[in-house]
Design a protein around this nucleic acid. Sequence first.
DNA 1: TTGAAAGCGTTACCAC
DNA 2: GTGGTAACGCTTTCAA
Lengths: 320, 320
Amino acid sequence: MSPMTVSRALRDDKTVSEATRTRIRQVASQLGYVYDTTAQAFRTQKSGFVAITLPSINNANFAQTFRALSDGLAGTGNQLLLGSTNYQVGKEEEHVRQLFSRNPEALVLTGGYHTDNTRQLVAARGLPVIEMWDLPAAPLGHAVGFSNAHAMTAVVRHLAETGRRKLAFVGASDGADMRGAARRQGVLETARTLGLPEVALLDAGPAPVSMRHGAGVVAQLGADVAQYDALVCVSDPVAFGCLSACQRLGIRVPEDLAITGFGCFEVSEVANPRITTVNVNAHKIGEQVVAVLRDILEQPEELEPRLIDVGSELVPGETS
Amino acid sequence: MSPMTVSRALRDDKTVSEATRTRIRQVASQLGYVYDTTAQAFRTQKSGFVAITLPSINNANFAQTFRALSDGLAGTGNQLLLGSTNYQVGKEEEHVRQLFSRNPEALVLTGGYHTDNTRQLVAARGLPVIEMWDLPAAPLGHAVGFSNAHAMTAVVRHLAETGRRKLAFVGASDGADMRGAARRQGVLETARTLGLPEVALLDAGPAPVSMRHGAGVVAQLGADVAQYDALVCVSDPVAFGCLSACQRLGIRVPEDLAITGFGCFEVSEVANPRITTVNVNAHKIGEQVVAVLRDILEQPEELEPRLIDVGSELVPGETS
DNA sequence: TTGAAAGCGTTACCAC
DNA sequence: GTGGTAACGCTTTCAA
């Protein structure tokens, strides 16, 4: 058997006969042969990498999207190359630079906010880009996501319809979590539109904020938290923290105070009472990104930019 | 200028004179020359990759370890290449093969259980291996972790000392989560040693089990769950699910029933009551793995295998 | 359906 | 301090 035939057999080239192919594969696995993708990447000038940045790996939503991407790419001979920025916007550029050194064939970014340097870096490369988890006003290329601000409209409307008027938003103080900031904006605007009183902003600390930050906000306020009708939280973990702290304080949810979360995390379904939340289809985002990626990777000619809105829906629970 | 001199100049080789180096760099940037890392990786057979497999990316513990690794490797010019197996042991071999095709310089595996094929694959490669989150009896190379079985001894002792006798273990039914299986084993053995009645095994479904699975187990048992003195759960999320379901059933925790978790997840600290758990130093595991990796990557000669026990400690809460 | 030759961009090794 | 040669493992191309 010539190397050439082996090469073809391992790539499932149709010109190789069924018999030789199975024989070659068998011998290869017996010999413990491992295909060298580096050499392939070198020869074909295609790395087989798709670069992806995530603000955090420790987040059920992003993890789900990542998994959908990973699964969806599995059959295509492409691999994900991950850079996790831990919510430091400044780190994105560094990560993108490092990812670029591997010659990725496409770049998947989380969110629509990037530093000027990052934008330049990406533009200079001229590789296909997909921004996800957001619908940027001026996308770098393709985008798959939903409007974080718009999603909050449904939440605030729901609260207003059930008689809540004095709202407080619980989220990160800094602007590092851009999606969180968009949600806050959505809450403020909708409340204004509906003629509700000014929404209070309760600072849960720097991003990423989670359960203990939500609990901390309520614990610090103590009984004063009852001055609000509803706590609109930036995420489910924060909402759960608030709920738990309320229960310790003897504040009844939802009788004394409504609480809402965001993201349809497992904790909201299991918590007692179940937390009202917003489903953002993390898995669907991954699937749609995969769909775009497949098209990108198959046909090298530039695709016309796509803007895919996966939407979001209110999931009423027992806390509102 | 010969290609050779250019190559040396761009790599800051000292044998190139200062004058030629600066001239070469200048011309290179003028021409828009881009250094090809893929070709370098191919030629030198050094990829700058450290391969890592995780059973799940959506797990706060593993995410923390991953982050510690990622941060610790940042300065070294090496990148992590991730394969997430989603608790399918059979998938590990496939992932390792895929990771190997990129010529990683070291391999970090989660857990000490691997298929024979995986073991052969790894042995044939002869690359440095670190197993983490476990202390295998026969390590493939280095190991950084703790004894899952031993950690449970502390839990069961604690329960016995506080008068609990009839225990039930809540965990996955299949053996896909090897660390979970080791924990179960630790519970069974310690109970036997202490002369407690036979521990009941409550099946929460196939791995990975989480909040809703814990809640499901208790909901299905209903009031019958009160026949036990304590639910020993394979992880904190499962424990939280059990706790929440008990609260819905009106079963008092810890008065009627004790509940313990594992892994020091945020939910256990914030839950009401706080859940008794075990701290396993996820971040420390990452740091120790980094320490070993740095030594491995610096000196190519084979290191003598290290076995690092990061230990674990009981964190008493309000559920026991 | 299979094989032979050439070459992808870099660097190890040796010569000058 | 600089340059020539060969080779890494694969695939494109052309020939049989």
